[in-house]
Design a protein around this nucleic acid. Structure first.
Length: 136
DNA sequence: TTTCTGACA
DNA sequence: TGTCAGTA
C-alpha cells in the first residue's frame, strides 16, 4: 500500500492537465500556490509539475471556498492537519499506536473525573503520567 | 504550443 | 480573478 502513496505523490502533471482535472484557471492554481495551499515541484524548465495529491488538494480547496472559507482559513486547516500528523508520527516513534493513544486519552478523562484510582506503571493506561509521555 | 512572471483593472 | 505582454 506504500507503493500507491508514492505514485500519488509523484509530480508528473503540467498545469494544463491540472486545469482540466480541477476546472480551475491557471491563475487560480498559481495563486493558491502563492498562498502556500499547495507546493508543486518545478521541472528543468521551471514548469510547475503537480501530483495526484496536489489535484485532490486543489479539489478540496475548491470545496472549502464554496463553503465560504477564506484562504487563510484553509491555510489554518492544513496547518493544524500537518500538526496532528506530526504528533501521530512522534507517538508512533514512541511505540504508541493510534489506538494506544485513544485508550490512554480516554482513561485520562476517567481519572480526571476521579472514577478510577491512579497507578504508577507506564503500561497501566490509568496512569495520569502517561499524558506527559505523549507530549514532545 | 504551453507555461512563467509581473502588472493593471 | 481575468487578461495582456514578453519570455523560455
Amino acid at each position: 500500500m506504500r507503493e500507491k502513496e508514492l505514485r500519488r505523490s509523484m509530480s508528473v502533471l503540467p498545469i494544463g492537465t491540472v486545469m482540466k482535472l480541477t476546472d480551475l484557471t491557471a491563475r487560480q492554481i498559481r495563486y493558491y500556490e502563492q498562498q502556500e495551499l499547495i507546493k508543486p515541484l518545478r521541472n528543468e524548465g521551471n514548469r510547475r509539475m503537480y501530483s495526484l495529491n496536489d489535484v485532490d488538494r486543489l479539489l478540496e480547496i475548491k470545496d472549502y471556498l464554496d463553503d465560504g472559507l477564506n484562504i487563510s482559513g484553509i491555510r489554518e486547516v492544513y496547518k493544524k492537519q500537518s500538526q496532528l500528523e506530526n504528533e501521530r508520527k512522534h507517538n508512533l516513534e514512541k511505540g504508541l499506536t493510534d489506538s494506544d493513544v485513544r485508550k490512554i486519552l480516554q482513561d485520562e478523562f476517567l481519572n480526571i473525573g476521579g472514577l478510577k484510582p491512579p497507578s504508577s506503571s507506564f503500561e497501566d493506561p490509568n496512569n495520569l503520567n502517561n499524558l506527559n509521555k505523549l507530549n514532545h
